[in-house]
Design a protein around this nucleic acid. Structure first.
Lengths: 160, 160
DNA sequence: GCTACTCGGATAAGTCGTGTCCGAGTCAAG
DNA sequence: CTTGACTCGGACACGACTTATCCGAGTAGC
């Protein structure tokens, strides 16, 4: 029961991209967070495939959000990076062994699967209720507006 | 983001143990579900360590629930088998890189960590609201009372 | 006292996440 | 228009964890 560590990186990158109006290269994002650039690229590719960010190639290329941050939920990022499959997968072991239940009765998922699915839905609902814009607003509330401005300034120039 | 597959086995075993008044050996539970006995033993050991079931050694030994099924939640089983750690672990990357936040500001978890923790709490709350007794009752409702009686009868004798 | 049966922890194989690399494509400048 | 350099994208090793298995310690009954 462990989530991919890349989710954290992807979420931080999404919040940072909120403050940048120009495309930001993956290498710059990696330097900002002091993480492996090669691996962060993998997560950004996943976000790109999911349509959350779009890539611009060439000299002044990089990544940028495709839609307003208020329309990107945390759940979207988690699904893009970690995959859409639920944590619990029912193996249907009720249909195995000497006391196997006949298939015609198993039209509904078993009680265990139902309980797990309900919990999974609650989890997804909680993540779907928070947008990247909410995260950015909370960051400003925690550290003050200068933080995002500083990041915006750090991203803009071509400094080392 | 994948849960240990042993959780499913452990939950089924917990429901089965609801119907048995005498200790049931791990090998018999494995045969009933047609799964690897050696590996199922591992999950049962985890449940034993967590205090959910107690083991009886010797000739007529096996496993039995320590308390009423109505006092054992699904969350208890999940934690026992899959571990108590939450799915998301914050690496505190906000304190790294050129724009690192000073430690004195980071008294509270970051916004991302808070959102993840809230979702995790919702998930745990949903799992904690369902007990093993509820699962057993749902099973009876799905397949009828004869099912548990059949399992009880299958567990009792020393048949091959 | 002995036998047989049970759990418990320590021990290998497989699978997935982690981390890295180089090539194809593209935009900007000269 | 040519050149150049910078960008992403997918393919390639490494490592950690889950999965699966085994044998020894302990215990109840005969």
């Amino acid at each position: 029961m462990k989530m991919s560590g890349g989710v954290e990186w992807a979420l931080h990158c999404a919040v940072v991209l909120t403050a940048a109006e120009r495309p930001v290269p993956a290498a710059r994002l990696a330097e900002l967070h002091d993480v492996s650039g090669s691996y962060l690229a993998k997560q950004l590719q996943a976000l790109s495939r999911a349509g959350l960010i779009h890539s611009v190639q060439g000299h002044a290329g990089g990544y940028a959000l495709t839609r307003p941050a208020s329309e990107i939920t945390v759940l979207d990022v988690v699904i893009a990076v970690d995959g859409p499959a639920p944590a619990f997968v029912c193996t249907e072991i009720r249909q195995r062994g000497p006391m196997a239940a006949p298939p015609e009765i198993c039209v509904r998922p078993c009680a265990i699967s139902r309980a797990m699915s309900a919990a999974d839905q609650a989890w997804r609902s909680a993540l779907g209720a928070v947008t990247v814009a909410d995260l950015a607003r909370d960051v400003v509330g925690d550290y003050g507006p200068p933080v995002l401005d500083g990041i915006r300034g750090w991203l803009a120039p071509a400094e080392e």
